[in-house]
Simulated scan of single mutants.
Amino acid sequence: MNATPFRSGFVALLGRPNVGKSTLLNYLVGQKIAITSPTAQTTRQRLRGIVTLPEGQMILVDTPGIHKPHHRLGEILVKNAQTLVRSVDVVLLLVDGSQPAGTGDGFIAQGLATQKTPVLLGLNKQDLVADEQGERITASYQALLPAAPLLPFSAVTGQGIPELQAQLLQALPPGPCYYPPEMVTDQPERFIMAELIREQIFHLTREEVPHAVAVVVERVEETPKITRIFAAIVVERPSQKAIIIGNQGQMLKTIGSQARQEMQKLISGPVYLQLFVKVEPKWRQTPRLLQDLGYRLES
């Protein structure tokens, strides 16, 4: 009798902004590697989360929410998400399963219908669905991709996650263990540190500020007793800089304090964090600055 083959491969987490892709990634990995926020378009860079089980290994690729871009940065993010679909083994199309399908979901589904990559349809936020709504909502999504298996779940409560994980693994081909079992992401710590700072900016500042912000960790000094991190927050206008700094520097101090607490969990040790803010006008529209800040089209 043949043993069940070890399965492995890459899974793209695709969907509109704010459907819970990063929350699901963190849940499956078992720790926080992707930032989350109620504000749409939190994710910018392609982030891989690695889930290793006795029966296989899934490399989950978080993507920016697919939306109508309003600047060069938005164009790069959407094109990179669309390119990713052609290079993975499985696509998990995530939707807000507490609401019927909208035009944005239909746009993404239409693009996936012409792809050869297998697609699973994940209906997130089931903890918010009233019983009388369930069938109507499910039918609206099934109509978008009739051939795709429908998987209801909640990335907040864990409802339906074991079934979702099993279906994803089964959809992957037999293959090797690409990464050591103890790895949860292939991103360097500096990337995660910068994202933890950006997350606090999303949580603490006004609606118009976070999307104009980039964070660069410029230096990390490690000693046996403490890790010192020096990071720049890049904004587009002096008014945004003033908001980030806050009255008598209080906002910047709060951003730094909360980001530092998250970093200490990441590296399991004490952290000294120094932040400064600089203005780069129209950086989201400037190819050179986008390259310098790590945003580029992927092949």
Rank of each mutant, 00 (worst) to 15 (best):
G56D: 05
S37H: 09
A81M: 02
V95E: 05
A259G: 07
M251F: 07
L123R: 11
G49C: 09
E199G: 07
A81R: 01
Q115H: 14
A40T: 15
Q99F: 05
V213M: 03
T205P: 08
L84H: 10
R48G: 10
L275C: 05
Q200K: 15
Q133D: 14
A113C: 09
K265F: 09
D96H: 13
H67A: 14
R296G: 14
L93H: 12
E189T: 15
G49E: 08
E208N: 13
L84Q: 13
E280A: 12
Q240G: 07
L73S: 10
P38M: 01
G256V: 06
I267Y: 05
M251D: 02
H67Q: 08
T205M: 09
H71N: 15
P281Q: 01
G102A: 02
L123W: 11
P69R: 01
E182M: 03
D131Y: 08
R206I: 00
Q99C: 09
Q187R: 15
I50Y: 02
L120W: 00
S268G: 07
L144N: 07
P5K: 06
L14G: 06
L25H: 04
G49F: 08
V119R: 06
R296I: 14
D131P: 15
T63Q: 05
V78I: 08
T205H: 08
P162K: 01
M193Y: 10
V129C: 06
T36C: 12
Q240T: 01
A194S: 15
A3P: 15
W283Y: 00
S257N: 13
V216E: 06
N124D: 11
D292H: 15
P287G: 00
Q165D: 04
Q170V: 09
I192N: 09
C177R: 15
G49I: 00
T185L: 05
G15H: 06
L169P: 04
V235T: 13
C177M: 11
R7A: 10
T39L: 11
D127G: 12
L121F: 06
R46C: 04
R48I: 06
D62Q: 09
A109W: 07
G246Y: 09
F276G: 02
T4A: 14
G256L: 08
G160L: 10
L14N: 08
S299G: 14
T223A: 10
G30H: 12
P188A: 03
T23F: 06
E280Y: 12
A101V: 09
A231T: 11
